[in-house]
Amino acid sequence: MKAIDMKDFGEADVLQLQDVADPVVRPHDLLVRNRAAGVNRADLNQRRGAYGRADFGDSTLMGLEIAGEVIAVGDQVQGYRPGDRVMGIVGGGGYAEIARIDYRMAMPIPSSLDDIHAGAIPEVFVTAHEAMLHLGRLEAHETVLVHAGASGVGSAAIQLARAVGATVHATADGAKAARVREFGADLVIDYKNEDYAEAVKRATGGRGVDVIVDFVGAPYLERNVRSLADGGRLVQVGLMGGKSATLPMDRLLFGHLQIMGTVMKSRPPEVKQAMVRRFRERWLDAFARGDIKPVVDSVFPLARAADAHRRMEANQNIGKIMLNAG
Rank of each mutant, 00 (worst) to 15 (best):
M1C: 06
D5C: 08
F9K: 03
E11K: 13
D13K: 14
V14Q: 13
Q16P: 09
D19H: 11
D19S: 15
D22K: 12
P23N: 04
V24D: 09
L30M: 08
V32E: 03
N34A: 05
A36K: 06
A36W: 07
N45F: 13
N45M: 15
G52V: 08
G52A: 09
F56P: 02
G57A: 11
G57P: 04
D58M: 05
S59D: 10
S59E: 11
M62A: 01
E65G: 08
E65Q: 14
V70W: 03
V70L: 01
I71D: 00
Q78Y: 01
Q78W: 00
Q78N: 09
G79R: 08
G79S: 11
R81P: 06
P82E: 11
P82W: 11
G83V: 10
G83Q: 10
M87G: 11
G88H: 09
I89W: 06
G92Y: 03
G92E: 03
G92N: 05
Y95W: 01
E97S: 08
E97D: 08
R100D: 12
I101E: 09
D102K: 02
Y103T: 08
Y103A: 12
M105N: 15
M105C: 15
A106K: 05
M107D: 13
S112M: 11
D114I: 13
I116Q: 14
A118K: 06
A120P: 13
E123N: 04
V124R: 00
V124G: 08
T127H: 05
A128P: 05
H129W: 10
E130Q: 14
H134S: 13
R137D: 14
L138K: 07
A140Q: 15
H141M: 12
A148W: 04
G149F: 06
S151W: 05
G154R: 00
A157C: 02
A157K: 00
I158H: 02
Q159S: 03
Q159G: 02
L160M: 15
A161F: 06
A163V: 12
V168I: 11
V168W: 07
V168F: 08
H169K: 00
A170C: 10
T171C: 05
T171P: 10
T171D: 04
A175E: 15
R181E: 14
R181D: 07
A185C: 12
D186S: 14
L187T: 15
V188Y: 01
I189F: 03
Y191W: 09
N193Y: 00
D195Y: 01
Y196C: 06
G205S: 04
G205D: 07
I212H: 11
F215T: 02
P219G: 02
Y220T: 09
N224K: 12
A229N: 12
G231W: 03
G231R: 10
L234A: 06
V235F: 02
G241A: 07
G242A: 03
G242Y: 08
K243Q: 04
A245Y: 01
L247E: 00
M249P: 00
R251C: 01
L257K: 06
I259Q: 01
V263Q: 11
M264E: 12
M264W: 13
M275G: 04
R278W: 11
R280W: 13
W283Q: 09
R289D: 15
I292A: 08
I292T: 07
I292P: 07
P294S: 08
V299Y: 07
V299R: 02
L302E: 02
A303N: 05
R304C: 02
H309T: 05
R311L: 14
N317F: 03
G319F: 14
K320V: 03
I321G: 04
L323D: 05
N324W: 01
A325G: 00
A325W: 00
